[in-house]
């Protein structure tokens, strides 16, 4: 696979390094993602998976290497950062819904004030997204009145309302009760089938097997192994990958 032709990659990361003080959090991470591809990132905790996807929309700053998102280089230029953020949606482990706003207001806030959509238009779009994630009847409730799974589905709808080209998922099911994980994964599967480009940090191996185009295994800030799910779960090359898989499967 050619790592050079950035034109056909919607996300291109080259030799990305990040330090927290002395701690080397990301070591020469290289990863390219094609449009409509679903990439699942797995690895033990502290391996830098979250840090890596948070660098892609500049929630964390990388210190060396290049990150290019949809042709826009991620630099200190605020305009570039804002443009990249408007094209990438992010779903967090802790949902991070705004507790003082209703579900509908959570979803329409950014479309109205960042994309300058009309309120009626934004609300129509929000309702169709709530239909898509299966909870239109919750539109006028506050996040605190919903279950964890419902909140995460609202968070997904909120990100989609910005009509992003890329969706980043940072352990979207880790904070959920087991019986609610499925409803969130179902929404994510539907999203993947619809052709969304996705990078998903998760421990849900079932989801990785079923939905991922490629699986990335990270450890200690480095990408150890990249491959298709079949390759990965049946024929892993590295000892460390095998050990990790044997512990969680």
């Amino acid at each position: 696979m050619s790592e050079q032709s950035t034109s056909q990659h919607i996300i291109a990361c080259k030799d990305v390094n990040k330090w927290y003080g002395e701690y080397h959090a990301l070591r020469d991470v290289n990863l390219n993602v094609k449009p409509q591809e679903v990439v699942v990132v797995i690895g033990p905790s502290g391996s830098g998976k979250s840090t890596f996807i948070r660098c892609i929309n500049r929630l964390e700053e990388h210190q060396s290497g290049d990150i290019i998102v949809d042709g826009i280089p991620l630099t200190h230029d605020v305009r570039n950062i804002e443009q990249i953020r408007s094209e990438t949606g992010m779903v967090f482990q802790q949902f991070n819904l705004f507790p003082h706003l209703t579900v509908l207001e959570n979803i329409t806030l950014a479309p109205i004030h960042v994309r300058k959509e009309k309120k009626t238009e934004a609300e129509e779009n929000a309702m169709s997204l709530l239909n898509r994630v299966g909870i239109p009847e919750q539109a006028l409730k506050y996040p605190g009145q919903l279950s964890g799974g419902q909140q995460q589905r609202v968070a997904i709808a909120r990100s989609l309302a910005m009509k992003p080209k890329i969706m980043l998922f940072d352990e979207p099911t880790s904070a959920l009760d087991p019986e609610m994980i499925k409803e969130v994964l179902d929404v994510m599967k539907e999203l993947a089938l619809s052709g969304m480009t996705m990078i998903v940090v998760t421990h849900e191996m079932g989801f990785a097997k079923e939905v991922a185009d490629r699986v990335v295994f990270m450890e200690a800030g480095s990408v150890v192994e990249v491959g298709t799910p079949e390759h990965f779960f049946e024929n892993a090359q590295h000892e460390r990958t095998k050990l990790f898989l044997s512990q969680i499967l």
Partner: peptide, 15 residues
Amino acid sequence: IPKGQYEAADAMGLS
């Protein structure tokens, strides 16, 4: 205010 609120606002492109 938890850090996640700032991050969510940032990630959505709010100034």
